[in-house]
Amino acid sequence: MVPESGGFDPAEIIGLAAELGKISMFAAPTLVKRLVDFAQRSGADGAGIKTIVYGGGPMYVAEIQATLKVFGPKFVQIYGQGEAPMTITALSREDIADSVHPDWLRRLASVGKAHSVVEVRVLGEDGTPLPRDRSVRSPCGGHR
């Protein structure tokens, strides 16, 4: 369904979710932030939203934590290439919501887990592969 406004209006999205129920959508992190900001101002809780898949840019750890507090465990992260529509990694709803896991904050700052048919390598500035357990400082407030 395309919202009547033809654009992204947080109030309209929240209203449609409440009216239609069980909606799933993709949103860039900036749009997720706009939804959260609206919900906090209006007292909305995201009723009717089943899943929001986010990607297309980094989601700051503090923002996904705030998002979970407002909407609950409704989020899935994807990371991939826009040029070749293929998702390389994903962070499941369960991984995002599992705040008691000892690596939860590191997970939130990551791009997720590689899909089974994908091989991922993390390279240093000189192009050499980094060891598996080596963290790389992320611009999103965590390590990758």
Rank of each mutant, 00 (worst) to 15 (best):
G46C: 02
A90S: 14
H101A: 15
F38V: 01
G80T: 13
A114V: 05
R107M: 14
F71A: 13
Q40G: 01
K33E: 05
G21W: 10
T67A: 15
M59D: 01
T128N: 15
T67N: 12
R134I: 09
A66C: 07
L91I: 05
V36T: 10
I88G: 02
Y79I: 10
T87I: 15
K33C: 04
A39T: 04
I88Q: 06
E94W: 07
K22I: 00
H115N: 12
G55I: 08
A62C: 04
T128F: 13
R93F: 00
V36L: 02
T128C: 09
W104S: 10
G124I: 10
P131T: 12
L91A: 09
D95V: 03
A18Y: 08
G57Y: 00
T30H: 11
V36R: 14
E119N: 13
Q65P: 03
R134F: 12
G55L: 03
L35N: 07
G124M: 04
G127V: 01
R34Y: 02
V120L: 13
I78L: 06
A66K: 15
A109T: 06
A109N: 09
T30E: 01
V122D: 05
D95T: 08
T67L: 11
T67S: 15
L105I: 10
H115V: 05
M59E: 01
A18H: 14
K33P: 00
E19K: 15
A47M: 06
L68P: 02
D103Y: 13
F38Q: 13
A84T: 15
G55C: 07
